[in-house]
């Protein structure tokens, strides 16, 4: 009886919102990192907030896709980042006056990739995992022949923007938080967002309820492409140029933050704030491992292990609910 009473108490950990865990994880690893280094607490936090932006951008797209239900995943994100960043930099050609055109071109490129992915999935009935993976080979090849691997510098004004801060907080971080709030509203307050969750829970039921399942799927893949493209353009501005391989680490990361953040891998239940916790956690993990000075082999093994353990914990938590 007492146990039940405890479980129902407001403060018991089983009643904590699911996204809090990823923030807690990030906090622990952060404290561990700066304790180990003996300095750099604020530097680590600002770096994590800067880089979390890119992870959250692709994570948002991936989250909507995964929420569509079992089998839905977008593996073309790294290739999209590579191609869209090259398109953006080439169109901008280093000139401040062309920034908007460049961003627009990148977004159109993301739309086209999202549409292409959906076409493979819908018309050719290829499972999303295979469709988006094979699409990424095509995108990468297009990227290679389009960009010829050239690293074109971004316009100075765009780079300055990605580096600017308001009261110590990177402007990009603030923009990404606003975008996340919008995504949360879309997910919870719009018909489209509710349909994504409904489709993820049961596509047949959603269909019979009169929801436009296929249109929702199309929109979701389009959105994932656009967000990855935006991430690519900003990343290129932030790191001083585009390269085809620069999206590579966002394959695992985009999926890991979604799962770590408490979004159900089986679909039907998304969690926006958790993305931030997951993104900060992953960045802090690499900070910790780099600070500890492990060799790159051991670092990769440990990163993998930590992600597996964290996801296993996240999974068991949601299973018990």
């Amino acid at each position: 009886m007492t146990d039940i009473a405890l479980n129902q108490s407001r403060w018991h950990f089983s009643n904590w919102p699911v996204w809090l865990w990823s923030f807690l994880g990030a906090l622990i690893v952060w404290v561990a990192s700066f304790s180990l280094a003996g300095q750099g607490a604020s530097g680590m936090l600002v770096a994590a907030l800067s880089f979390a932006v890119f992870t959250v951008l692709v994570g948002l797209g991936q989250m909507f896709v995964i929420t569509l239900g079992p089998g839905n995943v977008d593996l073309s994100i790294p290739a999209t980042i590579g191609l869209a960043s090259a398109v953006a930099m080439k169109v901008m050609d280093g000139q401040n006056s062309l920034i908007l055109f460049g961003l627009l071109a990148a977004l159109v490129c993301g739309l086209a990739i999202g549409g292409f992915n959906y076409m493979l999935i819908r018309l050719l009935r290829i499972p999303p995992i295979v469709a988006t993976l094979s699409a990424s080979f095509i995108i990468q090849s297009v990227g290679i022949s389009y960009g010829r691997g050239l690293q074109i510098k971004p316009p100075a004004a765009l780079t300055d923007f990605t580096f600017s801060r308001i009261i110590g907080v990177p402007v990009l971080t603030i923009a990404a938080v606003i975008l996340s709030v919008i995504a949360w509203l879309v997910l919870n307050k719009t018909i489209y967002g509710r349909t994504v969750s409904a489709v993820g829970q049961n596509p047949r039921a959603a269909h019979f309820a009169g929801l436009s399942v296929e249109r929702t799927r199309l929109l979701t893949y389009l959105m994932s492409g656009v967000l990855a493209a935006l991430c690519g353009a900003l990343l290129a501005a932030f790191s001083g140029g585009s390269s085809l391989s620069m999206g590579k680490e966002y394959l695992l990361t985009s999926i890991a933050v979604v799962v770590l953040g408490g979004t159900s891998v089986a679909g039907g239940r998304a969690n926006v704030p958790g993305l931030w916790g997951g993104a900060l956690f992953l960045f802090m993990v690499s900070t910790l491992l780099n600070t500890a000075g492990f060799g790159s082999g051991l670092r990769d093994v440990l990163t993998g292990l930590i992600i597996v353990i964290a996801i296993a914990l996240a999974g068991s938590r949601s299973a018990s609910r």
């Binding site: 300095q39 800067s50 690293q151 620069m246 900070t287």
Partner: peptide, 13 residues
Amino acid sequence: QATAQRAVSTVLP
């Protein structure tokens, strides 16, 4: 460059 920037950022503080 992008990978190096991220990696250096993690270790720099």
